[in-house]
Design a protein around this nucleic acid. Structure first.
Lengths: 239, 239
DNA sequence: CGACGACCCTTGGAGCCCCAACTTTGCGGC
DNA sequence: GCCGCAAAGTTGGGGCTCCAAGGGTCGTCG
């Protein structure tokens, strides 16, 4: 409102308003740098800066040679947890119940515990682990990355039919009694931005999930989701 | 690695590496624009752009007239949920158990249901609601915003001693049986960035919490936390 | 009628410059 | 020894320009 604040903000706020109130629907082109300078009577630097801010906010996307366009408002897919604790891929399972086809790839290898993973699994640094990397896709687009770590001795049945963590562990006489998850948000690492095809400026949701058997952590995984497309939902019965 | 990618990225990656491996500890000054142009043999535009990217990523902070500094790596405060379902302010409660003093302010007023809130509470748009706005502070700094909505008839005891949602409802014969929470991340709204004193480029965690009595939603709240400082933790016993 | 190339426009990288507002520092005077 | 002020350095807003790479369009040629 104040006419004293930066001119590029005037442009940003005007375009943002138009996107929010639907004047500029998803897919609509944003005026080019040259058009903005004329329309708002600002220099090229200000026009360019305004566009960059909007890209960073995830509201618009720039295509070289073509223009800037209002980004598709992603349907925030609810990822119901807790109702599928026995399923190895609750996210995928739930997405399928919503009529979406979800496919996944995974790679299994062996590794040693990093400081962070050792802390989470309460194991020494030299501990041998089986690492499984998952990439989930829906409608051709990557949806979610996950890396799971568990002691090698439990991963025996993994190749044959990908049974869930809990089923696999119970085959070894280990009963999972609790799942703990921590959700936070951060800037994607370059590899993640690449794998998930994230536009610049978007954040990811990072879910840290650990399966516990009593007081012993048995498996832990890092789940990375595009933060602007996903919600993680928890349901907790009371009393 | 490739010498063909933008020069500003070379600067970004070098500084990012130094921050990550501890060469530049929290609080350490980043070379100024003029120094960067000399050190990396780049133009002012590239140096400036590199700094802006690092600010956007939340790694450094710029102070006008002084310089850029490595941001304090915030201790990601774990916010354990589920263990305090009976407490109206589980976040605050948990922070106190970690030896932090947390204070809060709140304002109560009346409002009508917005489309979003009406949907969540399954009420008509004209429904009268009691809205309570909370601002939590710890060590002087704002920590968390929350806005709670509930039908006016349940808010009776709110003034006297701020009993929790569930206790207040049970005084009216309503038994809460389930809490559902949805976590996602987004860019803060201007008012939120202001209230939470968020630096540019940081995201917030948005927790949508609804208290249910059987199949009826009874109360819903929006909880907004600085995404780079907080984790939300869920613990789920497995049957 | 279809394919291909020329031309225009757009983004994104990069360079250089000016200026206001603010911080830090160091020097001179009391 | 201390205070205050001036000078130097720094960020952030803004302006202008050049250029490479790529998208779009239209007209021409085979």
């Amino acid at each position: 409102m104040a006419t004293s604040d930066p001119v590029y903000l005037r442009v940003v706020e005007d375009i943002r308003r138009q996107i929010n109130d639907g004047t500029l629907p998803p897919g609509a082109p944003i005026p080019s740098r040259a058009q903005l300078t004329r329309k708002y009577q600002v220099g090229e630097t200000a026009a360019r800066h305004a566009l960059r801010v909007l890209v960073t906010e995830g509201l618009i996307i720039g295509r070289v040679g073509s223009g800037h366009y209002v980004r598709e408002r992603p349907i925030l897919m609810p990822l119901h947890r807790w109702r599928f604790p026995e399923h190895p891929t609750p996210f995928a399972a739930d997405l399928q119940t919503q009529g979406r086809r979800v496919t996944w790839e995974w790679q299994i290898d062996s590794t040693e515990a990093t400081p962070e993973i050792a802390r989470r699994l309460r194991l020494p640094l030299s501990a041998k682990l089986t690492r499984t990397r998952y990439l989930y896709r829906g409608e051709g687009r990557p949806l979610q990355l996950a890396i799971s770590y568990e002691p090698v001795e439990f991963a025996a049945h993994l190749d044959e039919e990908r049974r869930g963590v809990m089923a696999r562990m119970s085959a070894h006489g280990v009963r999972i009694t609790e799942i703990r998850e921590t959700v936070h948000t951060r800037v994607p690492r370059p590899a993640e931005a690449d794998a998930l095809q994230l536009p610049a400026g978007t954040h990811v949701l990072h879910v840290e999930r650990t399966h516990w058997a009593g007081e012993r952590p048995m498996e832990t995984s890092d789940i990375v989701l595009p933060g602007d497309r996903f919600r993680v939902t928890y349901s907790m019965p009371v009393g």
